[in-house]
Each structure stands twice: as C-alpha cells, then as structure tokens.
Simulated assay, not measured.
Amino acid sequence: MNHQNMKEYEENLSLKVFVVLSRALQSIKKRVEEDIKCLGLNPTEFAVLELIYSKGDQPIQKIGEKVLIASSSITYVVDKLEKKKLIKRKPSPKDRRITHATISDSGIELMNEVFPKHKAAMQEILGGLNLQEKENVIEQLKKLGLHAQNQ
C-alpha cells in the first residue's frame, strides 16, 4: 500500500471509529436510561443522586462538571431531588456562600436498595466484553479522550 492509500485508509478508519463508538454509546445509554427510568428517576437525577451517594456531600456549583450536565440545570435537578426528599441542602461549614447537596436518609435507603440492581444491570448491558477487554477499552478511550482534549 502506497503512502497516499495508507493515509486514506487511516482517515476512513478514524471516521469508522467515531461512527462505531457513537452507535455503541447510543445503544448503551438507551439501555441504561431504560434501567434508570424503572427506578422512578430520570438519568440526570440518578447521576446527581449516585454522585452524592458514592462521593459524599458535594458543593452544588461543582456537581455539573462531575455528572456532565449544564450548570444552569443543576439547581432544577437539586430542587426536584429535594422535593422527592432524597437530598437536602446544607451550608458549607467552611464557607457560608457555598451550599452543599447532601443525601437524606430516604435517599440512602433508596440507593441501598436500587444501586446493587443498577450495578447488576450495567454488568449485563456491558456483558459483551470480558474483564480484560473492559480494562483495554477503558485505557484506550481515556487515551483517545485525552488526545482529543489536547488538540
């Protein structure tokens, strides 16, 4: 294969990686969202609740960057979770200008019940890869993401 053909082949392969990755993500997200809807939450609410459940109290202003939602939507999502009595707001002990979202007893109870089921569903959804393949995919996607970020 000459240089020109090799370059064209690699460009086409790059496009194919993007298409295959996008379709795989779409399929996985659809299945995960179906699983989450069964819990009575939307995916964004679940992501925020899961973050606080797993990582502890979070400054409301910082939640958006951790769960990949627009900061303008955070207050709305926190309000909805607060209405459902799954989280509470509390002032930061160090800085009164910062408000933390903290999980309530009801939120802990709900997550203790549903999170193991969610993890099992994720295992099933991503069961198309074995352990080694999952480790390789994680490594390769991180490499790909960092490269794209540094462009």
Rank of each mutant, 00 (worst) to 15 (best):
M1E: 13
M1N: 03
Q4P: 04
Q4K: 08
N5D: 06
K7I: 11
Y9W: 07
Y9V: 04
E10N: 03
E11I: 05
N12W: 05
N12Q: 10
L13T: 08
L15F: 08
L15D: 15
K16M: 13
V17P: 00
V19I: 14
V19P: 00
V19R: 08
L21I: 07
S22P: 03
R31N: 12
R31S: 09
V32Q: 01
E33G: 00
E33H: 14
E33T: 01
E34N: 11
E34R: 06
E34P: 09
D35A: 13
I36E: 06
K37D: 03
G40Q: 12
N42K: 09
P43I: 01
T44I: 07
E45K: 12
V48F: 10
V48R: 14
K55P: 10
G56P: 00
P59N: 09
P59I: 06
I60M: 05
K62A: 02
E65N: 11
A70R: 10
S71Y: 04
S73D: 10
I74F: 01
V77L: 02
V78P: 10
V78M: 12
V78A: 13
V78L: 05
L81D: 06
L81S: 03
K85N: 09
K88R: 15
R89D: 06
P93I: 12
P93D: 12
P93E: 14
K94D: 11
D95H: 11
T99S: 11
T102F: 11
E109K: 15
L110N: 05
M111A: 02
N112F: 09
P116Y: 00
A121S: 12
A121N: 10
M122N: 01
M122W: 07
E124Q: 04
I125G: 11
L126S: 06
L126P: 08
G127M: 13
I138P: 13
I138F: 15
E139R: 15
Q140K: 14
K143R: 14
G145S: 08
Q151H: 02
